[in-house]
Amino acid sequence: MKKTVFLGALTVAGMAAGASAAATLDDVKARGKLNCGVTTGLVGFAAPDANGKWEGFDVDFCRAVAAAVLGDANAVEFVPTTGKTRFTALASGEVDMLARNTTWTLSRDVDLKFDFVGVNYYDGQGFLVSKEMGVSSAKDLDGATVCIQTGTTTELNLADFFRANNISYEPVPIETNAEGQQQYLAGACDTYTTDASGLAATRATFENPQDHVVLPEIISKEPLGPLVRHGDNEWADIVRWTLNALISAEELGITSTNIGELSAAPGDNPEINRLLGTEGNLGEMLGLDADWAKRAIMAGGNYGEVFAKNIGESTPIALARGLNAQWKDGGLIYSPPFR
């Protein structure tokens, strides 16, 4: 009996919390700041600089949303979340959106009641080995010791991969990426496995990066994207179309340098005009003004510029666009039309 009452109270509390999620846009506007959940620190994706200003690939997306909604790319309160606290922070309304390299999976989308608004980075799990080992494929890793972060999907993917190929491995459990780097360099494991972007960032910090190589096999799909709560579709639309605006901008050749010129007056390309608000009323449909996409793009540049600035080939991480190239260039990055 008591248990029932308790569960009932839980349900009521949960419903009340759900109901509060209804008008995120109004909350954000009233607050004047966007609460954006990011990681506590991941190279290239989110990190504070010496002055405490956050920078990175995910951070720039938060800024783009803030620019679109509030007109100020700096009107963001970055809330550092860990892998354990991120989902409750979003569900409880502590943050308005998460941009925290979170893999889009069915259970997170459906069971945890979130909406993934799209994919801003296609990642996958890879292996880092030293060249001395003379291994050219992950299938040659029979009997290898593998450094692996415990309690992550990477651990499960690893087990699946080795079982499917009928080879054996010995796991060396580690807690953080920093620990993984140290263990790998100290020779505690033959290979270190995590998301390929993380491996590239790790390799870039080595004293002699050329002695190490990321194996060609990518053993899992890790589509990373921003997410919001279920149940507030207006807000989800805004976040989704901000991401699409950045992607379309790259496709249409709108950059942070030429956007002033392109948005000054309607040009020849109707899609650019619709996107930048010189034609049509797309902004109004979203509940924003006509300049929303222009501000989002000006915050950090289009998708390609954000990529190049934070994790692209000119940075120490030096990630190739690969799957994250525009669909025209053979990648998966694709935005529905602005119409």
Binding site: T40, V43, A47, D49, P80, T82, T85
Partner: peptide, 19 residues
């Protein structure tokens, strides 16, 4: 630091996330 507050240990992780 486990619940995402940036105390010295949490910050050390954030600092390492700087390229």
């Amino acid at each position: 630091s486990i619940i995402g507050l940036l105390d010295p240990l949490g910050l050390s992780n954030a600092i390492r996330a700087d390229q």
